[in-house]
Amino acid sequence: MKRHLLSAADLDRDDALLVLDTAAELAQLTDRAVKKLPTLRGRTVVNLFFEDSTRTRISFEAAAKRLSADVINFSAKGSSVSKGESLKDTALTLEAMGADAVVIRHHASGAPHRLAHSGWIQGSVVNAGDGTHEHPTQSLLDAFTMRRHLAGGKGDLEGRKITIVGDVLHSRVARSNVLLLATLGAEVTLVAPPTLLPVGVETWPCATSYDFDAHLKDADAVMMLRVQRERMNAAFFPSAREYSRRYGLDARRMAQMPDHAIVMHPGPMNRGMEIAAEVADAPRSVIVEQVANGVSVRMAVLYLLLGGATLGDGTEA
C-alpha cells in the first residue's frame, strides 16, 4: 500500500485484494456484541469535509471509531473555511493537532492530492470524494459487494461484466469504479447519454454505450449512478421522463438481467428517476448492503494506512 489513498489507481491488484480480504475479516465485527477493535488506539483521524456528505462522513467516522481511533469532524460549514481560510491554513491547523490521517471530501478535483503532496501534513490522506474526480473507497466497497455476490467473497472479479449507468461526466464514483474494477479483471461498460460521458472516456479501461437495453442480458451487476435534476436545466438531457425512460432501471429492464445479477447504487437514490422504487427494493438490490460494507472497507483502509509503522513519503510497504 502507498501512504495515501487518493485514487483507485493507487491500488495495484495485490493492494486491492489486501484491502478486500482485510475488509472481509473486519466485516465479522458487525455480528459481534462489541463492535470495536483496539488497533488504532491513540491515533487521530480527522474527517475534513468541505462538502456536505452525511453518509460518507458517518461511514468513515464509524470505521475509525470501531478501530478505537480518536475522530475529529471538521466541517467546512460554519468554520473558518467559510471565512476564507485556505486549504493550506486548514491543513497546518490539523497538523498542529496531530492528525495521523486526514479523510478529505472537497468540491475541487485534486484537493486531496494537493493536501497529500504539499508537505503541509505528515499523516496519510484518504480521498473521500473530490469534485468530479475520484471516490476510491466507494469503488472499494462496490468491488467488495460485487465480490461477495459474484465471486464467493474471494479473489478478484476476472471476467465479470459490470454495467454502470448514468451521469458518468460528473461522477467520481464511476471513474474510481472503472479504474478499480479494471484492476480486478472485470469488464466494465459505461452507459450514458452522449452528453453525460466525459471527453476522453475512450482512453479509460472500459467500453461505452448509449444503449442500456443492450447491456442488461449479460450483466453480472448493474450499477445506477445518481442523476441530479439540476443537470436537466443545463440541457444534459431533455427531461426527467426521457432520462428515466432511456437510462432508468425499471422492472421491465431488471427482468432482462440474469437471475444472479445484482443491482447497485451508491446513494442517495432518486427513486423514479434513475431507479424505480420496485427495483430499489427488489431482493437482488444490494444497495443497503453497500452501506454496511462501506464501514468494513473504510476500516480496512484506515487499518492498512495507519495500523502499521509510519512510512516515509511515497514509501511502499
Binding site: M232, A235, P238, R241, R246
Partner: peptide, 14 residues
C-alpha cells in the same frame, strides 16, 4: 427545443 423556444431540449430520444 421545447416549443422551438431555444431554452430546453425537447424529448429527442422519445
Amino acid at each position: 427545443t421545447l416549443g422551438l423556444g431555444g431554452q430546453q431540449l425537447a424529448e429527442l430520444g422519445a
